[in-house]
Design a binder for these strands. Structure first.
Lengths: 295, 295
DNA sequence: GATTGGCATAATGACATGTTATCACATCAT
DNA sequence: ATGATGTGATAACATGTCATTATGCCAATC
């Protein structure tokens, strides 16, 4: 039979204030309620807890022992309250985000930076990988949310469009095509092309979108990641097609040039993916607000 | 607003069994009761504690935190139960006994020995002093019980006769009176006498009892304690009058002799003194039983 | 010896906590 | 598919815990 912790709370107050009536006052209840509670606790524990013959009230040995444990219990209870409040006030907590490579590398860092400045106590986990893997980890639950490229066929997942992203054709600024003002589609398609590997989401999107338009890009080279594609392109090995978000720095430095080819324009939606029924932590809530706020 | 620890208990069971219905079974209550309790706890804490979308049931971050604290709380509760049971079963506890010098030195040791052999986990305190001081310490509460000589005028204390004690006249066995078969009262009263100091209870008893009979003993020497009286007497400095309980060893060794003088026979009651309303611990209860049992 | 403060007791009332009945929804074997 | 099974949610209702007010007793104090 467990100890009735409600009665214990009242008894602890009596022990602390060394008086039934003062304890009652502190608890905002009547004195008889406290009297009865302590008496009932004594009945249940089978031990006399208070020496009512002395004034101020004294604890018996059993009362002493029980009181010490009660203090420990209510200290822990208080700690729990504090911890929950911290969680609510975002002064404690974790947030695990999954992202596909391009988003993780180019779009998320500033957002995570802003989040961290605002909620420095929240522990952030960023998991970058292929959409397939990210989705899998979202379903098996270590991830709170995922931001991925392209279409998601998910069982019970909620997919929301987040931002639109454009894939642009890039050339080294010191290459012939880079120096051309507005090269024709024909000239562009005649040039060598550097691509991401076949498995990647970006590559899939590009292939599908262009196939729909009846265009096939030449494949000269495949690279494992966007960063390599950019380096190869700026080294003059050919043209490339990457997310507009990925080349801000190179454009600024004048290393790369965007070739404006309306026929090759590929736009895609970046998606926010969540498990729909799963409870939403305060940290996730705050992160969602930030995602919607940022333009 | 403190956490409702009753609801917390049900929640902790759910967390442990990762199932509402199994938790309900373990608690011997119905499943809806558990459902409602957890829901109410979530309402009160303002946090979602369980992720009901996964199976088996998963804890949210808040639930995780609350569960850890709950475990700590209920561990402490269990420790309290154990401690109280120990107290009840006399496997833990203290017992503080006050005694006047003669009782403490000669009568109590065998009793305390028996008590300790029977209840080795109980911590014993023996406080030996003048009746006056012992009574004072009983009232101001560090002592659970006192065993004293002679009459006690106590305010609200309960005085119960314990054992009868006889004060006997002793002589060194190699002294002239010691060798005499049955010396006359006159011869005894003519001899030098070694007494306890005037403040002691024993001395008071002797003086009063003999004064009632119209007898006054000569005072040759005063000593601070019974042990010294015995040594002085066996060294031949005169006769003495001490508790029969105090000389068992010397009689056995043949050092001292009891002079049988009917006129000088002084009997007194040794008393058990307790604070009447004060709660009685298990240890004290056991000690009282032992006091009554020993003959 | 009346007053005051503190705890106990009794009669009664409100709310917390339990119950049964039932539904909704998955999973799973047939 | 389909019906059996397991699990949780919800609703209506019963119960018992925990509170209240009213009052009495006792000790301390002026």
């Amino acid at each position: 039979m467990p100890i009735n912790l409600h009665l214990l709370r009242l008894f602890a107050a009596v022990a602390e204030y060394q008086s039934f009536s003062r304890a009652a006052g502190a608890l905002y209840i009547s004195q008889p309620a406290v009297s009865k509670a302590v008496r009932e606790l004594e009945r249940q524990t089978g031990a006399t807890l208070l020496d009512r013959s002395r004034s101020p009230l004294a604890l018996t040995e059993a009362g002493e022992i029980l009181y010490r444990h009660a203090q420990q219990i209510f200290r822990t209870e208080h700690a729990a309250e504090i911890a929950l409040a911290h969680l609510r006030d975002l002064e404690q907590g974790r947030l695990a985000i999954g992202a596909s490579t391009t988003i993780g590398a180019y779009l998320l860092p500033p957002i995570l930076g802003a989040f961290h400045r605002r909620y420095p106590k929240i522990q952030l986990f960023l998991d970058i990988g292929h959409t397939r893997d990210i989705i899998e980890r979202l379903q098996s639950s270590p991830l709170d949310i995922a931001l991925v490229e392209g279409p998601v066929e998910a069982d019970g997942l909620e997919v929301t469009p987040w931002r639109e992203d454009e894939l642009v054709v890039i050339a080294a600024s010191d290459s012939p095509l880079g120096r051309a003002h507005a090269p024709s589609l024909k000239r562009i398609l005649a040039a060598p092309f550097v691509h991401r590997e076949s498995g990647s989401g970006t590559r899939q999107i590009i292939d599908e979108a262009l196939r729909a338009k009846g265009i096939t890009l030449p494949v000269t080279l495949e690279a494992a990641d966007t960063e390599t594609v950019k380096h190869l392109v700026s080294a003059g090995l050919g043209l490339g097609m990457v997310s507009a978000a990925a080349i801000a720095q190179e454009l600024e430095l004048g290393r790369l040039i965007v070739l404006d080819a309306p026929e090759l324009r590929v736009r895609r939606w970046l998606s926010r993916v969540q498990a729909p029924i799963r409870p939403v932590s305060s940290a996730l809530q705050a992160f969602l607000a930030l995602l919607d706020a940022e333009v």
